[in-house]
Simulated scan of single mutants.
Amino acid sequence: MKAEILTIRFVHEGWSRFGIARVRLADGAVVEREIEDHGNSVGILPYDPERRVATLVRELRVPPLFAAGEQVQLEAPAGMIDAGSPEENARREAMEEVGLRLGALEFVGATYSCASLTTEKIHLYLAPYGRADRVEAGGGAEDEHENIRVIEMPLAELAARADRAEITDLKTLTLILALRARHPELFVP
């Protein structure tokens, strides 16, 4: 017997939908599980291989503020997939958030951000850039009130923060580790 969803009752529908699913498990037991659904996303770690820096953002995330009083966290640029491919959305988000025109994207993977709760699958990319690719200031879409601060950081410092467990955003940690595994020479001071 395979698991199957018997019913889903949505208790909120806004930017995200929150529902409660009744599920028959493979052993026949019927249980309830919560579901958060807001679509899929992209996360990008833009890095300059010549200067050995990465461009990240700091912005308020309300769940960490609620859970731990954290005002902002250091993150790779990211956003929801609207119309178009994940690659098109990655390039759009990089332009909106950090003002970078990206060319090549190196696919890292597509993974569920928290499979026990959300339907969101995040498509992760590494993206090399150069000085000439910074064409705007960034800061986020004006109508979204993101209040993004753009941070350019040496890759060696970023790796040290990861090693000290100071990177609290999972997509960002994944991207740092992927860049380090694929291009270790960029992290040598």
Rank of each mutant, 00 (worst) to 15 (best):
E87C: 09
P77V: 02
G28Q: 10
L126M: 09
D27M: 02
V57I: 15
G138H: 03
A115G: 12
G39L: 00
P128W: 07
K121C: 12
G28W: 11
E32L: 12
G99I: 02
L56W: 10
V30R: 02
I44C: 04
A21E: 13
E97F: 00
T111E: 14
P86M: 05
E36F: 08
V57S: 03
C114I: 12
G19T: 00
L25F: 09
K121T: 14
A132M: 08
T111Q: 09
A67F: 13
V53D: 01
A94F: 06
E97T: 05
H145D: 09
A54S: 02
S41E: 15
G43L: 03
M95L: 15
A104P: 06
V23Y: 04
V23T: 14
R33N: 08
I81N: 04
P64D: 02
A29E: 14
Y47T: 09
L25H: 08
E136L: 14
E106F: 09
N89K: 02
P77M: 03
T55P: 07
Y129N: 00
G130L: 06
L45A: 13
I148V: 15
E36Q: 13
V135R: 08
T111H: 08
G109D: 08
F18H: 14
A29Q: 14
C114E: 13
E93N: 13
L56E: 04
N147Y: 11
V23D: 10
A104S: 12
A83H: 13
A26T: 14
E96D: 15
P49M: 07
I20P: 02
Y129R: 02
I81F: 05
N89L: 06
A78G: 09
T118M: 10
